[in-house]
Amino acid sequence: MIAPRWLPLALVATFAVSACSSGDEPADQSSRFSRSAPPAGGSTPARAAALSPERYSAELTAQAGPVAKALAGIGRSRSLKALGERLERARVAAAEAAAGLGVLVPPADAAAEHADYVAALRDLTDDLDDLRESVEGRRLCTSGAVLARLGRAEGFEAVRSAGGDLAAKGDYPAEVATVKVPAARDRRLANGAFVRSGARSGRGTLTVDNGTGKDAVLTLVRGGTKAVSFYVRKKRKAKIGGVPDGTYRIYFTGGADWDGKARAFTRDCGFQRFEEPVKFTTVRTGNLIRFSTWTLTLQPVAGGNARTAEVDPDGFPR
């Protein structure tokens, strides 16, 4: 049986410039260079005036407000697609805020804090981009896992610190990193534990050999109904009985940290199904009762005859 498939460098050229003189020119090189006088009637551009505290506060609201809103939206994602989209929305908001605030001249007493805040927003932009890539690569699979990783990101902590410092200078709404971040976890169920028990009034049995390096959850689907789901720890076997007669499609997901509420692994997740359905039957002949017993392996085995296919995570039965 076949196991699932869990799964610019810049060249900077520098040029040395030297002055050469003929024998008729003075050896003192300093006499050869002079600062050009400004053109007649010309003037040096005036530095932009600092914003008033009230105007600066309004600019912060306009530029940084969307960042707080976008960050808060991450936790409301209910699918991997939505999670990726919300992370991209937050990344764009942070990048636009950094660009918009970067050209402003804040009140003089908040200049240092303002500079730190803009730099932190740029770092947060990079963090959010990394998180989006992790979701696309299935290294992070739920909003909780993303927020836990975000809480440990340098840019997020820098924005939280710089925003607090800026807010302490006056009525400056700069505290955008207010989203609650959970702690990273590593939850597991007992081997063979049911995620969904279902009706188990039959005689069929199913044994799953999980020789992979990840815990897994197997789900049997009959028609459009999720009949039963159960947990199989890595490097372990689990057996369930009482499977009613019928034809079932078998789906499985593997990963780390099982979130029972979301019914999903939060990290390093994969989603697949066996291509061929499995049929359970019970046959009575005289005093004999024969029933189906199936064994599935999730790792490669010699002579295996079960093929698997990838499944859209957002269409996976939970």
Rank of each mutant, 00 (worst) to 15 (best):
L7V: 08
A10Y: 08
V12G: 05
S36K: 10
P39V: 09
P39C: 05
S52L: 06
S57D: 03
E59I: 01
L80A: 10
L83H: 06
G84K: 10
L87F: 04
E88T: 12
A90C: 03
V92P: 01
E96Q: 10
A97H: 01
G102Y: 01
V103L: 15
A108F: 14
A110T: 15
D116I: 06
Y117P: 01
A119V: 11
A119I: 04
R132Y: 14
V135K: 07
L140K: 02
T142W: 01
T142S: 15
S143F: 11
E154S: 13
D165W: 10
A177W: 14
V179T: 11
V179E: 07
V181L: 13
D186N: 13
R187P: 00
G204D: 02
L206H: 05
G211S: 12
R222V: 05
T225Q: 12
V232I: 09
V232P: 00
A238D: 01
I240Q: 06
G242W: 01
V243G: 00
I250A: 06
F252I: 00
F252T: 02
F252G: 05
G255N: 08
W258Y: 15
K261V: 13
A264T: 09
F274P: 00
P277A: 02
K279I: 01
T285N: 08
Q299V: 07
P300M: 09
A302W: 15
N305I: 10
E310M: 05
